[in-house]
């Protein structure tokens, strides 16, 4: 009698095994994931004030992992002031997704900083609309170029930094600003 019970119990166990095994996942090929938040491209459009041809600085990394970036850094003209606008794109999407729109929508959480090496005679100034707290966003700016020189021009997009830290609204990126870096790209710029 007991043996029969045991056999029943054991077979119940085996049955459960089969039932559970039967509902495991099917083995289809996985779906490709294209990073949604990836920023592949940074465009810096500089237009000379009072007219002239727009100059495009481009950093493009379609793999988004730093292996093969394409960097275009044309020369700037001395003693010229440029109207500048930065654009962030995800070119893995078709058509390319303009991330700048997102940055502007979440303006209070974002700020673009332009860091100019001392050896480069250039002065960036924020222009364009302020965010709701009255702080600059930094997408639009002007760049006053002085004498012929050469040096690094670094564009940094900070997310959730403290935009009220003294100096931040003038574009000084001190460690107190904190937050996290979403974009950091450096161009080697020559002024002729």
């Amino acid at each position: 009698m007991k043996t029969i019970k045991t056999i029943k119990l054991l077979s119940l166990g085996l049955l459960a095994t089969l039932v559970f095994s039967a509902c495991s996942d099917d083995d289809d090929a996985p779906q490709v994931i294209n990073e949604e938040e990836v920023i592949t491209t940074l465009n810096l459009k500089l237009t000379p004030e009072g007219g002239g041809e727009t100059i495009d600085f481009i950093y493009r990394d379609l793999d988004a992992d730093g292996s093969n970036p394409e960097i275009i850094s044309p020369a700037l003209s001395a003693n010229t002031t440029y109207t500048g606008r930065v654009q962030f794109l995800n070119e893995l999407e078709n058509p390319a997704e303009d991330i700048t729109i997102e940055v502007l929508e979440e303006a209070e959480e974002h700020q673009v900083f332009y860091i100019v090496e001392d050896s480069l005679d250039a002065t960036p100034t924020y222009t364009g609309a302020l965010d709701n707290d009255g702080n600059p966003i930094g997408v639009e700016f002007s760049l006053a170029i002085g004498e012929a020189s050469q040096g690094n021009f670094t564009v940094i997009l900070i997310h959730e930094g403290d935009k009220n830290v003294p100096g931040a609204s003038e574009g000084d990126l001190s460690p107190e600003v904190g937050g996290e870096t979403d974009i950091e790209v450096t161009f080697d710029v020559t002024v002729e």
Binding site: I115, E117, D118, N152, T154, I156, D172, L173, E184, T186
Partner: peptide, 9 residues
């Protein structure tokens, strides 16, 4: 690392 004051690496 870029020095955010001098702009130099």
């Amino acid at each position: 690392i870029v020095n955010t004051t001098t702009g130099e690496f």
